[in-house]
Amino acid sequence: MKKIVVLLMVMSSFSAISQTNEGVVKYTRTTYWTKLISQLSYVTKQEKDKMSYMFGGRDDWKEYMLLYFNENGSRYTHSEEKSDESEGYDWGKQEFNINRNFEKNTMTDLVDFLGKGYLIEDSLQTPKWKILNDLKDVAGHICMKAMVEDTVKKQKIIAWFAQDIPLNAGPERLYGLPGMILELDINDGAVIIEATKIELKKLGNEMDLPKKLKGKKLTEKGYQEMLYKFVKEKTKEENANWIWMVRY
């Protein structure tokens, strides 16, 4: 709660500086699937080498995501934009609608897991970020590096947050840094989510929650436990498919 107070303080100071503090960030989410598979413990050295030998350099798969934000919260979901390679075909998308309300300190996430819809409603639980000493430019903003570990999916996640956008929203299910997260790098580049465009504009109803919240209700803890069980089971089975079944 303390943090929120601080945050609100920050917000108010920010609003004094810039006129518009709401808008949308466009992200490109690229999955490099040979890197993804190489991280599985049971893939042999020979298989890794062969995979990158056969598919390295053109194993990327792109999706487009949008992060709507204002001072009080954010929504992260799929963009309707199609990639050039798709020739316009649409193969459907799994529900991934992540809503953060920093004012009320709540999350309302609609996600698909193994073909079923879930509604994760809980209070916000900020990831345990470590702040590192690196600077980089992402989409015209100088960002600072931070890191967090996902112990369930066994991921090392690097985030780059903008020093000059004092909102603590971010892509995927991540947030809570003293600046907007503009880039995420999951497990040494297996998945990279990079902001391509930051547009400050007045939002309409883009941030409103859907009227009907369909899905089995879960707490954040319940959701993580479900994931943990699944990943553990599939890893034991040596079934690489779990990578495709859950959002990495």
Partner: peptide, 10 residues
């Protein structure tokens, strides 16, 4: 000990 973020302000 690990540079983890405790609090921030502006």
């Amino acid at each position: 000990k690990d540079s983890s973020l405790v609090n921030f302000a502006r």
